[in-house]
Write a protein that binds this DNA or RNA. Sequence first.
RNA 1: GGAGGCAUAGCUCAGUUGGUUAGAGCGCUCGCUUCACAUGCGAGAGGUCGUAGGUUCAAGUCCUACUGUCUCUACCA
Length: 870
Amino acid sequence: MLDKTYDPTQFESKLYDFWMDKGYFTPKAEIGKPYFSIVSPPPNITGQLHIGHGLDNAIMDTVVRFKRMQGFNTLWLPGTDHASIATEVKIVEQLKKEGIDKHDLGREGFLARAWQWKEKYGGRIVEQLKKLGSSCDWSRLAFTMDDKCSEAVRKQFVSMYRKGLIYRGNRIINWCPVCKTALSDAEVEYSEQDGHLWHYGYTTPDGETTVVFATTRPETMLGDTAVAVNPNDPRYTHLLGKTVIVPFVNREIPVIADEYVDMNFGTGAVKITPAHDPNDFEVGVRHNLPVIRVMNDDGTMNENAGEFAGLDRYEARRRIVDRLREMGRLVKVEAHKHNVGTCYRCHTTVEPIVSRQWFVKMQPLAEPAIRAVRDGEITFHPERFAKTYFNWMENIKDWCISRQLWWGHRIPVWYCDDCGAEICEETDPTECPNCGSKHIHQDEDVLDTWFSSALWPISTLGFYRDSDDFKAFFPTSVLSCGYDIIFFWVARMIFSSLYATGQVPFRHVLMHGIVRDEQGRKMSKSLGNGVDPVEFIDKYGTDTLRFALINGVANGSDIRFAPDKIEGTRNFMNKVWNASRFVLLNADGKQLTDIAKCRLTLADKWILTRLNDTVTEVTDLLEKYELGMAAQTLYDFVWSEFCDWYIEFTKPVLYGTDENARRDTLSVLCYVLDAILKLLHPFAPCITEQIYQAMPNHAESIMIQPFPTKRTDLDFRDDARLVEELKDLVTKVRNIRSEYGVAPSKRIRLYVEVTDERIRECDLYLVKLCNLEEAVFAPAPDGEKTVRAVGTAAACEVPLGDLVDKDKETERIRKELDNVCGEIARAESKLANPGFLEKAPAQLVDNERAKLAKFTELRRQLLARLDELQ
RNA sequence: GGAGGCAUAGCUCAGUUGGUUAGAGCGCUCGCUUCACAUGCGAGAGGUCGUAGGUUCAAGUCCUACUGUCUCUACCA
């Protein structure tokens, strides 16, 4: 039997262990069997569980449990990510506290520390994920740097290298002077900052003409190798082909013409620094300009900076501006807001720098990736995110994949010290295949962490090992992640998988939003407004966490995680618990009947019909991955129909003396509760299993039971409609009681005049739900003062004696009459519209006619009542 | 600059091929220790669905423009 109070901490972790012991999470790789598979987005080993993981896992577990119950061979494969740069930053910080520089340890020593870190924090996050109740297969737990994944990275790299899709070159990249590594474009975040536009100029050697321009980064002038103007700009035609002198370094540079220059911006002249600006770099390529780097990797000025060498970039900027001012060259200084790129890990302003790095050539990879989504091989939910995807893919630039870090997959390229050959093989070479020299050395850099993440679905399933898992579970069915990593991850998995396997990595992409705080702010460490899922689960349980994150939330929209929402969800769990307790307390030790053999009451028929509706709706919604609406549908059914009405309907029977009726009603109660538990299980796995285990005739576990399906043999539309009429009457009578201040405990008599004879069967329901002393199926005796509730199946009269106020009652009836007349007018005007009759579906026209008939009848009765009152 | 989202009850939000009287939770008002649940029960009040046009028999839903707001993306020195 269930405990008196709902306390999830008493059973959640026990149930998880039970499921694990039974091996329910671990499917066999059965090739050809209908399957459902998800490969989990791997959390970074740097961190701990946050609410975003909670959301991600709640979504995946709900879908996975649903599909498992539907009978699919279901795999949910979990893992963790080495998170190259993020982890390395953390370890460097840790070392710093111990007074150690990473270079003191050397590469080997550092990597040893990193693996220690991985053991500690990777293990911790796995334990935290288990608290969520996620039914993932821990026997297949993967790590981006384990053998299988490393092998995939190696093979993919070599293959792409050989096809010329990976190349090494000098390009402008984003450089983080703190992390001291290159970053991809996706790893740069822009933030608007207050800066300045400094206007000054360079003068021709003869000292006669000065070309004035504006810049936000004066320090880069030391690397200027040209001044550019628009070829169509008449102001500067006379200067084309001339030269000007860069002060401080006294370099003579040409004035060139290039379309890139916007004549209407500033003075129409631009200083060109090919080594430190992406656009200038392009200009430099077109005009064959020298590339002069003036900065070191740590953001200080290098030897090319002349008198400013050794200064930090910002100090150099200040000094240069000061000097220009002293020299009288500074024409103007303007305040200027501009977007500055920052490192997504440490938020330092990145420096565009020319550097020799490895790149993935994107154009050939992007095309099939765009096609796959366009052709519907992959579907985004909601669809609009496909646009975001196209937008990025169609304007994609080459992907810088080398990082000047140690923690990660080392680039599998060796260089021959003797002949300079570049060697890229699947197995580590020992000598140069070109000249036979033994003097070879490996590239020092590691790969962007997202290069391995991009292979995650194929590497974890063992594509490069020809494994059964791959054959049984690929392409995966669903990918679930936040919209913030579409570029980092989703897009890259798509083109990487298409390249390697010729197949898409997943069929459906479920995008969710960001979990925000009560005021709609992002949760962050600095604001201290984050919700720790582990703490939350210890307090409320994982079912409440999961349901609160999913219920009523539209796909892809951000979620406000507010305390009253949490309480509401907890209350719902409590409701489920107590309703179950009611059923189980009554069913305890009683014999039940097969539902198909029960003599069903009207209420039974109603709830079974409504259950059918709910099963259909929830199943449809889940199949469309509309989890929020599916949960909402269940919430409403459980609370507003099963608890508020059906359980109340059963009470007169359960507390009555007819043993057969009691048995049958209990059978229906148990049947419906059992179905509710199963429907709810994907969303709230623990509470449903706990209750299920207390049910009569339960099987080993709810999680391997079939998901409920519609019972056409238990569908009673007509009776269900009648019960809706009954509910309507009950509400109206209660309303009258409330309006007239009849004490809830006061039992009254009710006179009922039926239009639908079946209402007579509802005697007990009326007595119980309206708290009657009796229901008399006759008109009220003459002279009895009553208030009337009018419905289509019956009209009820509540005798209230002197409480009845003629004016008040007239007013009440008039108000209802207004409403009814409004509806009649509406229906009539629709039915009078020839267009509607011709073009609207027949069903709709019929509905409208039925509605008109119903309201006309109500109007008749209301008018009759008004007459009586006169 | 480009793209996209949002704008519905006091608040937070659902509302998916256009089709019953636009819903929920919270809050609010009134009343209830009714034997599953006060984490509850019953009854209510509260919305011309941002503005203006258009398409349609029919628009919260589709189209156009506008206003407000948020996000992504690019980046002109």
